[in-house]
């Protein structure tokens, strides 16, 4: 089931929360939605789930438009909103039953579904308690359970792992990955390793615009630029001579000694070149001992920072 977002714009007063964004998500894809606070992630999700109408543009879910067939779309979407609002005065089972009925699960199946969700989300011990009495992590699980109860083809999760303990985070990620095989999942998060661990594709938005779109690998390649190496030598002569010798290699663009670490240098290669071989050969030639050579990869954090700060 595909989601097509077309020229979506949402204006609050003077401010554009979402500014003319378009993208498409296909079945079996897990899309990670990244962006600093106030970038427009939540607004976009609220529009896709038919909670809010956009100022301009359209979202089509399996060729149903949010303007014309919100009912059809809402049936197919499981949604976990940002702050996980729940009826605190209801107990877990009643609440799941209520949501299941609203989503049109037949009376015959609903009990099985509730049992399944309680099992999947690890709610067994707490199932008779009122939601208001649960800890934050358990409430989050109830939020996930209600989103998934009717086995929706699309899952939209706004920060699904907040408030969970590390074991639970890993379980939920596993669950999302598992679900993502046959469903379409959009999840937003601030936790960057989470995106790498769960998502097939990353969409970074900033100030209401898409600034990056691609798999974690392609994004990293785009941002990588020149090769960076961290190299450490032992038994070398003077630091200055090492620098000037390295600098004279024709693949090397720049050499920086690392502060407070003797014999450690950061070496940047020229565009499209690699200096690993020539550095090694230089060591052999000069009888230096190389104790470390590490390529420095651009982390997702760096990409994120670069794209979202001005």
């Amino acid at each position: 089931m595909s989601i097509v977002v077309e020229n979506l714009t949402k204006t609050y007063g003077q401010q554009n929360a979402v500014n003319d964004i378009s993208f498409q998500v296909n079945t079996g894809e897990i899309l990670g939605f990244l962006g600093p606070n106030g970038a427009g992630k939540t607004t976009t999700m609220k529009i896709i789930t038919c909670f809010m109408a956009p100022t301009k543009g359209d979202v089509r879910v399996n060729n149903f438009s949010i303007h014309d067939n919100p009912e059809e779309i809402k049936k197919k979407i499981g949604y976990l909103p940002e702050n996980n609002p729940l009826y605190y005065d209801m107990n877990v089972i009643d609440y799941l039953e209520f949501v299941g009925e609203l989503q049109g699960i037949s009376k015959a199946k609903i009990q099985d579904k509730i049992v399944e969700m309680i099992h999947v989300c690890g709610l067994n011990i707490e199932k008779h308690k009122k939601i208001g009495e649960l800890s934050k992590g358990y409430r989050q699980r109830v939020g996930l359970a209600q989103a998934m109860i009717n086995d929706p083809e699309i899952l939209i999760l706004d920060e699904p792992t907040t408030g969970l303990d590390p074991n639970q985070i890993i379980e939920i990620r596993k669950l999302i990955r598992h679900l993502g095989k046959e469903k379409t999942v959009i999840l937003s998060t601030h936790i960057l390793p989470e995106v790498e661990a769960t998502c097939d594709r990353i969409l970074i938005i900033n100030e209401g615009k898409i600034v990056a779109d691609g798999t974690p690998e392609t994004l990293r390649k785009q941002a990588q630029g020149n090769e960076m190496l961290r190299v450490q030598f032992a038994d070398y002569g003077s630091r200055d001579s090492v620098i000037s010798l390295l600098q004279s290699l024709d693949t090397v663009l720049m050499v920086d000694p690392v502060l407070n670490e003797d014999g450690t240098f950061l070496i940047q290669s020229r565009e499209g070149k690699s200096s690993r071989r020539s550095i090694f050969q230089l060591c052999v030639q000069k009888n230096w001992v190389m104790t470390e050579m590490t390529p420095i990869e651009t982390k997702l954090e760096d990409i994120f920072r670069e794209l979202t700060t001005n």
């Binding site: 609220k46 809402k74 949604y79 949501v99 989503q103």
Partner: peptide, 14 residues
């Protein structure tokens, strides 16, 4: 106030 309206209205109801 609690935001549950968002959860309610994103279910299959008008």
């Amino acid at each position: 106030k609690s935001g549950t309206i968002e959860l309610l209205l994103t279910k299959a109801v008008t």
